[in-house]
Simulated scan of single mutants.
Amino acid sequence: MALLEVNGLGISFGGLRAVDDFTINIEKGMLYGLIGPNGAGKTTVFNMLTGVYRPNNGTIKLDGENLVGKSPAQICQTGVARTFQNIRLFKKMTVLDNVKVALHNETKYSLWTSMFRLPGYFKKEKEMDQRALDILAVFGLEGQAQVMASNLPYGQQRKLEIARALATNPKLLLLDEPAAGMNPNETAELMETIKLVRDKFDVTILLIEHDMKLVAGICEYLTVLNFGTELASGTPDVVLHDPAVVTAYLGE
């Protein structure tokens, strides 16, 4: 059984069919790419997978559990985390605290313990600090732990958003254009980091990306969307040379 099973997914906004009959199966541990021209429906798919939109039809299962109808918070607790095309950090919080916010998803202490700063509070906070630093170290950000998120360079903000998503301990990590706005050197570094994340955290990754060099360099399988429907699926070397895919990206 695949980790993620999506069958016949569709959604309409008014009279516009934004996504139609979308089907995808992703095995545990895969690094899978969802690509397509602007407006193809890629982010809409992410929004349905994470509960932001409820599909009009179709099914979404993670490890056999139905996700349709669950709230974004419930889906996160089930094991799905995401980043966004436009960075959404807590910019007036430190790098460390951005990650610790996500760790509260699984670290608990009572209101009483928190209010009166009982020993259990300091123990849990120390554990979260170390866990957050361990995650930041994967991205080379442990040295910026006390820096305000707004003061990080753009490329590091992108990495911090991925680090925060990983702190929820997901089974499936959705990356929405992780290399957007990065220069070639930053993109090359990010490619290696994403591979490391997949292996170190034993997480399955589905990403949206327009940088074809990144897609070809790290994705094991691709699905191409165009006008909300599947145009092609297969390995990168086959899909990226498909005449229909080339036409969709470049025009006639």
Rank of each mutant, 00 (worst) to 15 (best):
Asn185Gly: 11
Thr229Gln: 13
Asn47Tyr: 07
Gln146Asn: 14
Val238Ile: 13
Ile218Trp: 12
Ser12Trp: 04
Ala179Thr: 11
Asn66Asp: 12
Asn66Val: 11
Thr235Ala: 15
Gly120Thr: 07
Val203Asp: 11
Ala137His: 13
Ala167Arg: 00
Val95Tyr: 10
Asp176Leu: 01
Leu111Pro: 05
Val80Thr: 06
Thr247Gln: 15
Ala145Gly: 05
Asn169Ala: 09
Ile194Trp: 06
Thr235Arg: 11
Leu34Pro: 03
Ala81Tyr: 10
Gln74Asn: 11
Leu173Cys: 00
Ile11Thr: 03
Glu177His: 00
Gly69Val: 01
Gly58Glu: 12
Pro243Glu: 14
Leu172Ile: 03
Leu225Val: 01
Leu103Gly: 12
Glu65Ala: 02
Tyr154Gln: 00
Phe201Thr: 07
Asn183Cys: 08
Val6Asn: 09
Arg17Pro: 14
Ala248Gln: 04
Asp202Tyr: 02
Phe201Glu: 12
Pro178Asn: 04
Lys171Trp: 13
Ser12Ile: 02
Lys91Asn: 15
Ala145Gln: 04
Arg117Gln: 15
Val147Cys: 08
Phe46Val: 00
Val238Asn: 05
Leu111Arg: 05
Arg164Ser: 10
Gly8Phe: 12
Leu207Ala: 06
Asn226Glu: 13
Glu192Cys: 06
Leu96Phe: 11
Val101Leu: 11
Thr59Asp: 13
Pro184Leu: 05
Gly14Pro: 08
